[in-house]
Design a protein around this nucleic acid. Structure first.
Length: 264
DNA sequence: GTAAATGTTCGGGC
DNA sequence: AGCCCGAACATTTA
């Protein structure tokens, strides 16, 4: 599920516990989501620390406990965060459960493409600081975007939009939405885009991200009416503008839908 | 039974 | 040293 706005929605699901101390941590230590971290180290380090901070950037989330313990979460393809009452019983895919004074914070992920990180230090960890500004932020400038595109000239633009090092938070449906709204065909080589197309791409990226945040981040509502989003999931989909049947192909390794009439 | 799913990461080729 | 492609990861659902 989770792209930029869904990630922000899930991040907030843990807010009910802010300020409360950790009483106990329960985890399935041998699962893939804990690759590269000492799962038991997390339990020991969090015990008695207050849940003190919560941030999202692109598809990454960062949670702070006390002053120096940092838990990073990436939701992968099927990850979710939620809060539960203390008495709940974790099920098979609840890999990490942080019990606080009155609520339990749960990370669930059936496919386990998601990931939990753990760092100790007085500053946010290195991996977090390296995440670039996502398109809805002021600091995502057209110049910055153009410089990134220049490094991936041979990739189809659809594949370039999926690179988290330049378009933090963009995933498969948002990339298709951005290209449709910018009227650019997904298979176009990144290096062949003309200046007016770059301008449309930049505006579309910012607009789609902002509106998606507005619609989804607070209550997981639907994206605006008239978006490609509502059509792109079925192979019966049509262009919201004039009902032309959408084209479908694998581009950049992912299923891509576009309107052959609007997007050139 | 088979295919596909809102995502990364690795290894190999260029 | 980059860049680019395809396979791999693990599970559920259509």
């Amino acid at each position: 599920m989770p792209e930029l706005a869904e990630v922000e929605y899930y991040r907030k699901q843990w807010n009910t516990g802010l300020g409360q101390p950790v009483t106990r941590v329960e985890l399935h230590d041998q699962t893939r989501v804990f690759r590269d971290v000492d799962a038991h180290g997390i339990s020991a380090a969090l015990r008695d620390q207050p849940f003190s901070g919560s941030w999202a950037r692109g598809k990454q989330m960062l949670f702070q406990f006390g002053r120096k313990a940092w838990v990073g979460v990436h939701l992968g393809m099927t990850g979710k965060l939620r809060s539960e009452a203390l008495k709940f019983r974790p099920d098979k895919h609840d890999h990490l459960v942080i019990f606080l004074r009155t609520v339990a914070l749960v990370f669930q992920d059936a496919r386990q493409f998601g990931r939990v990180r753990f760092d100790v230090g007085s500053e946010p960890p290195e991996w977090w600081r390296k995440i670039p500004a996502p398109p809805h932020e002021q600091t995502f400038t057209k110049k910055m975007m153009a410089a990134f595109l220049a490094r991936h000239q041979r990739l189809p633009i659809k594949a370039t939009l999926l690179l988290q090092t330049g378009f933090a938070g963009i995933g498969n449906w948002m990339a298709d939405e951005i290209l449709w709204q910018a009227r650019i065909a997904p298979h176009r080589k990144t290096g062949n885009l003309q200046p007016d197309e770059l301008d449309r791409l930049w505006r579309s990226a910012r607009s789609v991200c902002r509106k998606a945040m507005g619609a989804i981040a607070s209550d997981f509502g639907d994206p605006p009416r008239g978006w490609l989003f509502h059509e792109r999931w079925s192979r019966k989909g049509v262009c919201p503008k004039h009902r032309t049947p959408l084209k479908c192909a694998t581009i950049g390794g992912r299923t891509t839908a576009w309107c052959p009439q609007c997007q050139k």
